[in-house]
Design a protein around this nucleic acid. Structure first.
Length: 467
RNA sequence: GGCGGCAUAGCCAAGUGGUAAGGCAUGGGUCUGCAAAACCCUGAUCACCGGUUCAAAUCCGGUUGCCGCCUCCA
């Protein structure tokens, strides 16, 4: 059965069938780089990186493009405030973005186009819209003539007249109609600007995605994704521009992730209630944040606070411990054949359940519950006196495969070697236990604990880990 | 005013017609020299009212509460 995917356009789950067999063209709206990203901004990269991983895992050749908005009003304002130039600010926060999302386990897109490097195609795009009668120039600005495009409102399911009633749409004097939106903005005194047939200025916000998606992925793409708040007006406008230009369907499937809330309210830069990824990952394992995001279905809101993150940490720890325990037992395992089939069968059942969960609109919450169940199964197996290397191996591989689909790491970032002092204490303690000098053994254990080394005595010997 | 989402155990969270996955926390137990890890046991009739159905958390209608988009925003 095909992967089912919820399409905002139709408001239904649909079987995912890409335009070209085996290939997926995917565009994810990227950040405006005028600040560090907050954890709400981090949701699309994480969610859609996971979608990409999964599609790849299922055999698709995925072409993934995600842009940077590196010039706009907010960047200009920030530059002015800081007394810097726009490109400087953009550069800095693009670097910071990569640093943050990489820590969160997101791989690079195939292309990360930037507005400032796409001026030629943007201008050409706008010019063609003018030529076709879908856009008009007005005192150095260019506007899209919204009413000329028939399908306007099909993504947000609003009729054009209802939108018009919306009290908050301002009528600019330069616009012919309140619903028209800007494609090109003329530069004010001292602002960063580019030459164009309509004078010096810069692109409006929506046009960049249309132009860049077309350039890197073609007229029709399979999946277009972003945060829920982009569906109107941003994505609606993209559809209008692109389809007016090409006469073809712009994107076949639209995916929108839900928000991150703080105290039940949307996290946003303008509300000021945001938590920066940059700060969070200083205090918490970034993998925990990713696990946290994926433990909720991507279309549902997530409420964020430290306590929830801590609970998540403990849960992730459980799976990792299970994985560590398997690795630890590997050497002590024999080439058994008894019951192997039975266990291998159970493992593959879990594998199927994971696939089923992900096939159902990327239900990572259910997929993760399968990981917990696999973990329980593994722990149960480890209770056996004699374990089979083949079964252990199968468990390990399963964990590794499924974790990598979710973009999660099974290893904690750490921590290689012990220093000599600790090494010695460990050996002393092993001897003490042999001598049944438990008082000394316990003292050493306490001492190591103070040094953040936690010991576990198992049937296969003593192990340590950092706390 | 238009469009949409949500309401499931102490907390987080799946499930969308056949009598409620999973995680965290709590309490009890097993294992262990003692711990740790692990395992077992422990909890909800799904906001409220009405309807459809042999059967509803799940469909329909209504009520209440919360949130979002319609304005820069992931």
């Amino acid at each position: 059965m095909a992967i089912q995917l919820y399409n905002t356009l139709t408001r239904k789950k649909e079987p995912f069938i890409p335009l070209e067999e085996g290939k997926v063209k995917m565009y994810v709206c990227g950040p405006t780089v005028y600040n560090y990203i907050h954890i709400g901004n981090a949701r699309p990269p994480i969610v859609f990186d996971t979608v990409r991983n999964y599609l790849t895992y299922r055999g698709y050749d995925v072409h993934y493009v995600s842009n940077f908005t590196d010039v706009d009003d907010k960047l200009i304002r920030t530059a002015k405030e800081l007394g810097e130039e726009v490109p400087q600010i953009a550069e800095r926060f693009i670097d910071a973005y990569f640093e943050d999302v990489t820590a969160l386990g997101c791989k690079r897109a195939d292309v990360h186009p930037r507005v400032t490097e796409s001026m030629d195609i943007i201008i050409e795009f706008i010019q063609t819209l003018i030529d076709k009668g879908y856009a008009y120039e007005s005192e150095g600005d260019v506007y899209f003539h919204t009413r000329k495009f028939d399908g306007y409102g099909k993504l947000s399911h609003q009729s054009i007249d209802e939108l018009r009633v919306g009290a908050r749409i301002a009528i600019g004097e330069k616009k012919q109609d309140a619903l028209d939106f800007v494609l090109w903005k003329s530069a004010k005194e001292g602002e960063i600007k580019w030459d164009s047939p309509w004078g010096q200025g810069r692109p409006g916000w929506h046009i960049e995605c249309s132009a860049m998606a077309k350039k890197y992925l073609g007229d029709t793409i399979d999946i277009h994704a972003g945060g829920q708040d982009l569906s109107f007006p941003h994505h609606e406008n993209e559809i209008a521009q692109s389809e007016a230009l090409t006469g073809k369907t712009f994107a076949r499937y639209w995916m929108h992730n839900g928000y991150i809330n703080i105290d039940n309210e949307k996290m946003s830069k303008s509300l000021g209630n945001f938590v920066l990824v940059h700060d969070i990952i200083k205090k918490h394992d970034p993998q925990v944040l990713r696990f946290f995001m994926l433990s909720v279905h991507y279309r549902n809101p997530i409420n964020y606070n430290d306590e929830l993150l801590e609970n998540t940490r403990v849960g992730l720890e459980r799976i990792r411990t299970s994985y560590e325990n398997l690795k630890h037992r590997k050497q002590a395992s024999a080439e058994l054949t008894d019951h192997n089939e039975e266990w291998l069968q159970k493992i593959s059942q879990h594998h199927e359940e994971f696939i089923n969960a992900m096939d159902d609109d990327f239900n990572t919450a259910n997929a993760i519950s399968v990981l917990f169940e696999l973990s329980k199964l593994a722990n149960y197996y480890l209770m056996e006196k004699n374990t089979s290397a083949a079964v252990i191996e199968a468990f390990l591989k399963e964990f590794e495969d499924l974790f990598s689909v979710l973009g999660l790491s099974l290893e904690k970032e750490q921590e290689e070697l012990l220093d000599e002092e600790i090494e010695q204490l460990l050996e002393q303690r092993i001897q003490a236990r042999k001598d049944r000098n438990f008082q000394l053994a316990d003292d050493i254990r306490d001492k190591l604990k103070e040094m953040n080394i936690i010991l576990e005595d198992t049937a296969q010997g003593t192990r340590w880990k950092r706390g």
